[in-house]
């Protein structure tokens, strides 16, 4: 269907998107790269000049840096694992013959509509708060000490909150995928003597591959930059226990007001994101083609 003229038209029509995104990506990136080699502190503006690789060295030598990297990966991996597994289970459950599937879907999707700062503040205050939160009340009612979620288990708490936000997304994609599975195929498998477990293993799971791919891809994109939830709840603490790479950069930029150092962190974060993206695209790309 492609003639020379339609190919030219196609180039012209895709150009605005590509150019805009390229500028949106390259200009800040170039500036960040520039700052990362400069001495630039808002608190002592009189000092300036080239910094060489000292900002990078600072990051690589900082014990917090490696913690931040592992926290970032832990957050992404943890949320992915929880949402994909629970998402499939929730989808399987709602896909059963149940009364009120419509209202069920509305209930399940609701957390997706809650903006991250609100979600974080609801969980922090109404549920996880050590004096007034609901969990504390229950613990006291049962005669236990309230658990200090955000102090004792900061990463787990953040992962839990973020998983709650993203579970609806995963569950509803999986539900749609399940519902598109032809019942004839399932019945044929049943006739062939496949039990419920083998039907799930050999028919349902292969059918879901594509949607699992999409869920992992989309969520990773959003999860790598998670910031608001940490900012609202633990502020990266206690100490640096729940500091992720984006949050560490934010601290350097906004709290320490060291733009050069923050920029170096930004470049490192971009490199990390690219590594993750590379592996993700390589391993998932083919699943998307079919």
């Amino acid at each position: 269907m492609a003639t020379q003229s339609s190919r030219i038209a196609a180039r012209l029509m895709v150009a605005p998107s590509v150019i805009l995104l390229f500028v949106w990506m390259i200009v800040p990136l170039a500036l960040t790269l520039w700052y990362s080699f400069r001495i630039y502190r808002l608190l002592s503006p009189e000092r300036s000049g080239w910094a060489g690789f000292q900002h990078y060295a600072w990051f690589l030598n900082s014990p917090d840096f490696w913690l931040a990297i592992s926290n970032t990966l832990l957050l992404v991996g943890g949320v992915l694992a929880i949402t994909v597994i629970l998402g499939i289970l929730v989808a399987l459950l709602i896909d059963q013959p149940v009364w009120g599937q419509g209202p069920l879907r509305i209930l399940v999707i609701s957390p997706f509509f809650v903006m991250p700062p609100v979600a974080a503040s609801i969980w922090e205050n109404l549920f996880m708060h050590p004096q007034n939160g609901m969990f504390a009340s229950f613990a006291q009612g049962l005669g236990f000490q309230p658990i200090l979620f955000l102090e004792s288990y900061p990463m787990s708490s953040v992962i839990f909150i973020v998983s709650w936000e993203w579970l609806p997304f995963a569950a509803l994609i999986f539900l749609t995928a399940l519902q598109s599975l032809s019942s004839e195929q399932m019945e044929a498998a049943e006739m062939d003597g496949a039990g419920a477990m083998s039907r799930f293993r050999y028919i349902v799971m292969p059918h879901m591959t594509r949607s699992i791919t999409v869920v992992i891809l989309i969520q990773t994109i959003f999860l790598l930059g998670i910031f608001g939830e940490i900012y609202t709840t633990t502020q990266g603490g206690p100490g640096s226990a729940s500091t992720t790479l984006p949050y560490m950069i934010f601290k350097q930029a906004v709290i320490a007001k060291d733009i050069g150092r923050a920029a170096a962190g930004g470049i490192i974060a971009v490199i990390l994101a690219n590594i993750v993206a590379f592996f993700l695209m390589r391993s998932m790309g083919k699943n998307l083609d079919a």
Binding site: I249, I259, G265, A269, V276
Partner: peptide, 13 residues
């Protein structure tokens, strides 16, 4: 992939 760039990284520019 342009979406994967962490926002915090390019905040200052």
């Amino acid at each position: 992939s342009t979406k994967m760039m962490p926002a915090a990284a390019v905040l200052i520019p």
